[in-house]
Design a protein around this nucleic acid. Structure first.
Lengths: 353, 353
DNA sequence: GAGGTGAATGTTAGCGATAACACTCCTCGC
DNA sequence: GCGAGGAGTGTTATCGCTAACATTCACCTC
């Protein structure tokens, strides 16, 4: 008489008790089968599985989350931009999370100020996410994140390297150092740098790497040209640099800046790479088809995503991590925007004129 | 004596009953305050609010979802690519959803085949999302979506226009028509088209728009050059087109294809726009800094996102929508890759040679 | 063969919210 | 002045699951 068809509610998603009834066991046994507990007879397990399939039963995540107090959700906070780096990272992370059985709950913010970040954190707390991943490339974002309560796992990506909180980042310093050195090795007396926004950690790290390479080679350090990440600002910077004959090598903080620079040079008839060499950063998919194809630094976003997830899951399972900082070194991709000069011509020394 | 500090569990998130005890009411009254029910005395409401603030109480979404059977989640299915269009759309949609009080649960798939989509749909069903938004630009994706059960709200973006299911899409036909007509009006005898992957609806729509403009102007239709969305394939197509002197105008299905074409033309000394005019599609932020700045069609991704959300929410609240198809016309952005020719020179007629 | 052990299973008690209904009062209308 | 009706509030059941404890039974040990 325990046939489930009693015809009251016409359709309702089958619940665990429905499966239990069909399999002739208690709902707890169904739960055990679902969660892979050891003490279930093989025969019983099969009966339960059959009942699950027959009913098309799917566990209710809300109920599970309610009773366990945990969810399989990872809250992500990112800026609402279509910048290539963050967008790629987000995609890579979502994939990595899905493979580990987690779902990404996405919260974008318009600006990286304290208030927006705080509200995003609140939101994720309300949802009882298992942990938070924040792409926090500016000081204000990193500071706002300090308010995340201690118990809640948090990994910052592209955040403040000075903080002790778990952090994964592209090795900006090493990448910029290598890019600059590549230009120096090609025979340029010095290298100019068009940077990203000064309040981004990424920018700061790249500036330091550039300075370090210059200092090491005893090259004179030209004034820093600060821009934002856009092709437009690269273009503006490029218009200025194009008028300076002593500028023969430029390290742009990303590929879109480089694109703007390329066009500015083109318009002023300064040929790249013959007159001016340019190196970018990011290796956007189109960089190979710039005029000329751009030499650039390629970060490994998948590696960043993997490390981020592993650092987060370590916290979730309360494993102590010795040094919770991971930096992923980018790789130089040589194309055609850098020319090797055998010697420095007279009148082309650094800052001449 | 009803002080909550009884010191058993050291810390636990405060629940509704804790608030109720502090405010001296029943938990049901707290619930009423939270949900804005009318029949609560103002004084009581204030007392409850004060208790909420004092305890830092936050409602448990899992508990609410369990009892109501509904969540404030929207499941999104998208391809795991960093293509500009889908990435922008995703960002715009997440923002729109957040403003409406919904959270986006993201599921990316590597390939748009039946199996991957089905698994993503399963996942969202398990989560009891309020509805699903799928960016399904290929036939296989659209077909797989047919298996979404009838009760579950679904909006397809960039999907199959032939289907009756709710759909929002950029008006590919109109955009391609306008781009092609723009080139025709500029005096070109005909326009070549480098298309996206043939199995994308976007591609198909753009091809039809192109054909229509050609037919209307009684211009001869050159063979279609099929590519994918990448700059690499645009470059290949461009190398071919550059060798054909009768090809004076190209409509590329997106800006990255156009970029590849631009470089191919440059390498073959075919000047853009003097010798060849090019129009793209998407208006990626860098398009203005291509060499030369690219004339292109700009889709309004925010509008697409808004329409998508409104169509989805209509279904969630079971409102009948008359014609659940929305197309958003893109806008022509004129820059410097198109040249107006006063007359067609002899020997430059279509398909001459 | 009494009792211990552990595997296999069942029973009960919540998790934290909403829904449905019950119960006070108070205010009307006639 | 009394019943209807509604505002304001409380009580109880319930959503679907897991945790903790209880129970059964077979097998082994001495």
């Amino acid at each position: 008489m325990d046939n489930p068809v009693v015809g009251s509610r016409v359709s309702r998603d089958p619940a665990m008790t429905d499966v239990a009834r069909l399999a002739g066991v208690s709902h707890q046994t169904v739960s055990r089968v679902l969660n892979g507990h050891p003490n279930v007879r093989e025969q019983t397990r099969l009966r339960v599985r059959a009942a699950i399939d027959q009913l098309g039963y799917r566990p209710n995540k809300a109920a599970r989350a309610l009773v366990t107090g945990k969810s399989q959700l990872i809250g992500v906070i990112a800026q609402n931009s279509s910048l290539y780096g963050p967008a790629s990272l987000l995609g890579a992370f979502e994939t990595a999370a899905a493979e580990a059985g987690f779902t990404v709950s996405l919260r974008r913010v318009k600006v990286l100020d304290r208030e927006s970040i705080a509200s995003a954190v609140e939101h994720h707390r309300d949802t009882r996410v298992a942990g938070i991943v924040a792409i926090a490339p500016t000081a204000s974002a990193a500071e706002a994140l300090a308010e995340v309560p201690a118990g809640l796992p948090l990994v910052t990506v592209d955040g403040d390297p000075a903080r002790e909180t778990p952090l994964v980042t592209v090795d900006q310093f090493a990448g910029a150092y290598e890019a600059t050195k590549h230009l120096l090795d090609a025979g340029h007396p010095t290298v100019w740098h068009v940077s990203g926004p000064p309040d981004w950690f990424d920018s700061a790290g790249r500036v330091r790497g550039w300075q370090h390479a210059l200092a090491e080679a005893a090259a004179e350090e030209p004034p820093l040209v600060a821009a934002d990440w856009s092709a437009a600002s690269g273009y503006k910077a490029g218009q200025m640099l194009a008028r300076m004959p002593e500028c023969t090598a430029v390290f742009a903080a990303n590929d879109h800046l480089a694109l703007g620079i390329l066009r500015a040079m083109y318009e002023r008839d300064r040929r790249v790479p013959n007159d001016v060499s340019v190196v970018g950063f990011d290796d956007v998919p189109e960089a190979e088809y710039f005029i000329p194809p751009l030499t650039t630094m390629r970060p490994d976003f998948h590696a960043v995503a993997r490390e981020t997830l592993s650092l987060l899951l370590a916290q979730v399972s309360e494993v102590e991590v010795e040094e919770p900082h991971r930096t992923i070194a980018p790789e130089l991709v040589r194309r055609e925007s850098v020319m090797h000069r055998l010697e420095t011509l007279p009148g082309e020394g650094p800052l001449a004129g």
